[in-house]
Design a binder for these strands. Structure first.
Length: 147
DNA sequence: GATGTGACCGCCC
DNA sequence: CGGGCGGCCACAT
C-alpha cells in the first residue's frame, strides 16, 4: 500500500531531513550521515544530499505555493560530509558554502587543493537524537562519561 | 515503465 | 595504514 503513495513517503523523508537540518544551532555544523541517522536512515546519507539538491528556492514562483522548506529556511550550508569537508559539488559552490559558514562564525580551514574542512571538535554538532525527539523521550538516567 | 545515477558513509581486506 | 565496494531512496531521462 505504502508503495503506491510514493510521494507521501518522499514528503516524510524530505521533511525529516529538513527538520533535522533546521535543528542545527547557529555556528554549528553536522554531517550527512548524522542527519541520515537522525531521520532513521543511518545507512542512507546519500539521500540526504539528494534532498538538499532538490531543496526548493526561498522565493520561487509566486504562482506556486511557498514550500515549507527552502534554502532560506533550511541551513543546508551547515550540512557537510563526515570528514568535515564540503562536497565539491562545484568549485564555487563549495567556496560559497565555506564563506557562508565563516559568516556564521564557523572556522573553516582551506586545504592546499582548495578543500574546505571544518573542525568538528569545535563546531561539530552530533546529538544522539534531535532536541525535539529528546523531549519526547523520557530521560530517566543520563549517561555521563568523563576521561 | 525501467534503468542509472547521485552533494555519502561504514565496513572489509 | 590505505584502498575499494556495497547499500539506500528518490529523481531524471
Amino acid at each position: 500500500m505504502a508503495r503506491g503513495e510514493r510521494s507521501e513517503e518522499a514528503w516524510a523523508w524530505y521533511t525529516a531531513v529538513y527538520e533535522a537540518i533546521q535543528e542545527i544551532p547557529y555556528g554549528k555544523v553536522t554531517s550527512y550521515g548524522h542527519i541520515a541517522k537522525l531521520v532513521g536512515k543511518p545507512e542512507c546519507p546519500r539521500q540526504v544530499g539528494v534532498c538538499l539538491k532538490h531543496l526548493p528556492s526561498p522565493s520561487t514562483d509566486p504562482s506556486k505555493k511557498s514550500p515549507t522548506w527552502h534554502s532560506g529556511n533550511v541551513p543546508w550550508q551547515r550540512v557537510i560530509n563526515a570528514r568535515g569537508g564540503i562536497s565539491p559539488r562545484g568549485p564555487s559552490g563549495a567556496s560559497r558554502q565555506a564563506t557562508a559558514l565563516r559568516a556564521e562564525g564557523v572556522h573553516v580551514d582551506q586545504g592546499s587543493m582548495g578543500e574546505f574542512t571544518v573542525d568538528f571538535g569545535k563546531f561539530g554538532w552530533f546529538p544522539d537524537v534531535l532536541p525535539s525527539e529528546a523531549g519526547l523521550v523520557e530521560s530517566s538516567d543520563e549517561e555521563e562519561e568523563d576521561t
